[in-house]
């Protein structure tokens, strides 16, 4: 029971009371698990993550964190709120949202500063993260002037500096070049290796197998379509196709027209170097 971090039972959530985002979600997340949430655009991934981070609250159903319900009333308790924020870190999909301070340094230290971490300890953590993420020379820059890759790294740094037990990431590699994507995956693997619980929402199937043990597929009906080990889910072509995670297209290689589906390899080797498996139908 102590290992159970999040327990969601029949969770419903809608925007403005009429646009459903989550439609009966049941999920249990245990300590140290590495989970990926995959799904097409608008399948409710971001809403789900925001519910886990206590930023929005379910219309119905229950969301428990270490056995205590996540609701507005509990978040009004300063002690609980601070303890929760120290344990759970959230990296937003849009780094422009997360980087709201006039400089990169102020953005990175914002979290621990507001969570009451001692200044010397913040400085030590900052120094370490700057070195790990290669943020030297960026600290006095205005976030607006950074490239999307740099912004993403700074956003991750601003969350990692809190040293949360649970790291939630919303599309951490969206819009990044291959090298920066690789850098972020390596960072997530290292973070996972240190025993943290990592929950990542993505529709980049190439990274899923590397960063997760369990994959949840969110369907267009805003509920969990399937879940299981990454290798099983990624090999289930029909499931991926039904949930807009796989597409079939044709293109020309010299004189031959190929028709094939784009899907990630079920085996670690190919996916780890980001290759697509082509299934030819001719």
């Amino acid at each position: 029971m102590d290992n159970m971090i999040f327990e969601l039972k029949n969770v419903y959530f809608s925007y403005l009371g009429k646009f459903p985002a989550l439609n009966g979600i049941d999920i249990k997340i245990q300590k140290g698990q590495k989970i990926s949430i995959v799904g097409a655009n608008g399948s409710g991934k971001s809403s789900f993550l925001q519910i886990l981070d206590g930023l929005i609250f379910a219309d119905s159903g229950s969301v428990n964190f270490y056995g205590r319900e996540l609701n507005e009333k509990n978040f009004n308790d300063d002690k609980f709120c601070r303890s929760f924020r120290q344990k759970v870190g959230f990296v937003f999909q849009n780094p422009d949202v997360q980087l709201f301070c006039p400089t990169v340094q102020e953005d990175i230290v914002f979290g621990p500063l507001h969570l009451g971490v001692e200044k010397k300890l913040i400085e030590r953590r900052l120094e370490r993260l700057v070195s790990i993420l290669g943020l030297q020379g960026l600290l006095d820059r205005i976030p607006h002037q950074l490239s999307i890759g740099e912004k993403r790294k700074v956003a991750i740094a601003s969350t990692l500096i809190i040293e949360p037990e649970i790291l939630i990431l919303d599309e951490p590699t969206a819009g990044l070049d291959p090298l920066t994507t690789r850098h972020i995956i390596d960072l997530l693997i290292d973070t996972g290796a240190s025993g943290k619980t990592i929950i990542t929402a993505t529709h980049d199937l190439h990274i899923v197998e590397e960063i997760s043990d369990i994959v949840y597929v969110f369907g267009c009906e805003k509920k969990i379509a399937s879940f299981g080990k990454a290798s099983c889910i990624l090999n289930d072509m029909e499931l991926l196709k039904a949930n807009n995670l796989l597409h079939i297209h044709s293109h020309r290689h010299k004189d031959t027209v190929h028709v094939h589906s784009h899907r990630p390899s079920g085996q670690g080797g190919a996916s780890s170097i980001g290759l697509d498996t082509h299934i030819d139908h001719h």
Partner: peptide
């Protein structure tokens, strides 16, 4: 709204 959520998420009270 989103920025406020980002602030809350990092301990702003």
């Amino acid at each position: 709204e989103e920025v406020y959520k980002a602030m809350l998420s990092r301990g702003y009270q």
